[in-house]
Amino acid sequence: MRVIVDHDLCVGAGQCVRAAPEVFEQSDLDGKSQVLQPVPDWKYQAAVREAAVRMCPARAISVVG
C-alpha cells in the first residue's frame, strides 16, 4: 500500500491524524496533512483506509495498492 495526500485539496481538518497518528501528522504552519509513512506498516493499513475513504472531509487522501 502507498498513501498520497493532495495538498491542494487538504483543508487541515486532521481526521487522518486521528485515524492513524503513526502515518500522518499536521503542519503547524497551515494544518495540512503530512505523510510520515508513505508505505504504511501493515498494522496501520486499515486505519489509513478508514482515513482515506471515510474520514477525510476533503477527500484528499489516495491509497494505491
Binding site: V11, G12, A13, G14, E25, Q26, S27, D28, D30, G31
Partner: peptide, 16 residues
C-alpha cells in the same frame, strides 16, 4: 476560504 482556512488550521491541529 482556502487562504483564511489555512491561516487558522495550523493553530487548531491535534498537536496544538
Amino acid at each position: 476560504h482556502t487562504l483564511y482556512r489555512h491561516m487558522l488550521a495550523g493553530e487548531f491541529t491535534m498537536r496544538r
